[in-house]
Amino acid sequence: MRQRRILPGFGLSMGITLCYVAVIVALPIGALVFKAASLGPEDYWRIVTSARALASYRVTVLSAAAATAFNLVFGLALAWALVRYQFPGRRLIDAMVDLPFALPTAVAGIALTTVFASNGWFGSFLASMNIKVVYTPLGIMVAMAFTSLPFIVRTVQPVLEDLDPALEEAAQSLGSSDLNIFRRVILPLLTPALLAGTSLAFARSLGEFGAIIFIAGNQPMETEITALLAFIRLEEYDYPAAAAIASVMLFAAFVMLAVTNYLQARALRYTAR
């Protein structure tokens, strides 16, 4: 490490950075943790393990898991098609994969609700098969799948692009079948990126709010996600409960951040980028 700083601007740039991070990021998070901690262990435990809170964790985690599983399959298929095949509209689809990130979540929420409502384009068709999406956990999954779609595509895509064809050719020349090569050569190379994308998508689904509240119906115990429960407690002026539930979400976010960082570090090591 150098002793002397050669370039100017350390004080200024560091000052701006620390001020911003302290005021905008650290202060509110600290205040939330402080508020939750000031509850006392018994009250805190009672709030975060209340039946309604537990039900909201279950709905959120299960829906996020289902949405992520869907995106794992569809995201991999989409990335594969975009990288390996030429077909009309390929570049348009490649660009539109980012739509769920660029489209405000409230807009996505009302659009998905309208499409899947029982009188909507898909909803009326699904209703004829007795499948109800809007105001059911299925609706939560659809909203989560939409908002987290780009993560897996965008983490797998570059790895798939950089894949050395020689590896496949070697396996082919040894007489291995396509399915076998995919399973034993390609999939292991994609796994780190797939895992990293999966954890990003899952984390995003856990915290999603805007897209979900329109389509979920928000029935306590059944279709109420944890983020909404925190919001409802605020509207009821039950600030301690809001703080406690938000702190559980914050804790889950930290866990997911640690998992994602670990997986991403692994993915970077494997792809040597």
Partner: peptide, 23 residues
């Protein structure tokens, strides 16, 4: 410092809003 800068991406917007309320 890098983790703190990137932290907001990992946190649900609702949690962020609640946190600002407590400031």
């Amino acid at each position: 410092l890098t983790i703190l800068i990137e932290l907001p991406f990992s946190i649900s917007p609702i949690v962020a809003g609640v946190a600002y309320l407590f400031v």
